[in-house]
């Protein structure tokens, strides 16, 4: 029944009346029929005659396409090797030009001075070594103190020990601002200059 109702709906557009489909119905329409004409369905295209091409031309065309692609690839590779310039690392040209002007007259050190400097360097190396050894010993001492405390805690209560060896996630991220050369001045109003961002944009 469904199909019938659909057919009724479109019967106004139909080329032939629905009765020809074989459904027996008696519908009367008062509206004028629309005069649409539809050509016959072919379901296929007439065959075209194949054009014969010169194989030399085809080959030339192929070659041209390949060359074009290769050229593009080469250009891309070349660009890939080109790195972003770092202005701070490259010496400015005007400084390179003034190199002769900016050179200091080389200092002539007396043999005593050279000797004194060498001795001081050696002293410094020894001093740094002692300092390093002292630091390592200090860290060992502090770690041993902690180890002892943890061992004692384990003896006392295993639960507390388990809690104690849990990582402290509050410490991440950790920032610390170290000691400074002169103490900060309280309520100091820093005379900030104007800030102009001159860094270049490198996005593509």
């Amino acid at each position: 029944m469904f199909s019938l109702s659909v057919v009724k709906q479109f019967s106004r557009l139909a080329i032939s009346s629905s009765s020809t489909i074989g459904i027996n119905s008696r519908n009367i329409f008062t509206a004028a029929a629309l005069q649409f004409r539809i050509t016959d369905q072919l379901w296929a295209e007439p065959l075209k005659k194949k054009k014969k091409m010169d194989p030399a031309i085809i080959k030339a065309r192929e070659d041209r396409r390949r060359k074009k692609l290769e050229k593009q690839i080469r250009r891309l590779e070349k660009n890939a090797r080109q790195l972003k310039p770092i202005d701070e690392v490259e010496a400015p040209l005007h400084l390179i030009d003034q190199m002769g002007k900016r050179k200091r007259t080389p200092v002539q050190l007396s043999p005593e001075e050279v000797e004194a400097r060498a001795l001081l360097q050696k002293d410094w190396a020894r001093y740094k070594r002692e300092e390093y050894m002292a630091n390592v010993a200090q860290i060992d001492r502090i770690m041993a103190a902690q180890r002892r405390a943890l061992d004692m805690l384990y003896e006392e209560s295993e639960e507390l020990y388990d809690e104690a060896i849990m990582p402290d996630l509050q410490l991440i991220p950790y920032t610390i601002s170290g000691p400074v050369a002169t103490p900060p001045i309280k309520n100091y109003d820093s005379p900030d200059g104007e800030y102009v961002d001159v860094s270049k944009k490198w996005d593509n």
């Binding site: 103190a145 902690q146 943890l150 004692m152 990582p167 402290d168 509050q170």
Partner: peptide, 12 residues
């Protein structure tokens, strides 16, 4: 700022 969950020293 506490620096660890673990004790660092012991005294009895």
């Amino acid at each position: 700022q506490f620096l660890s969950n673990a004790p660092c020293g012991f005294y009895k």
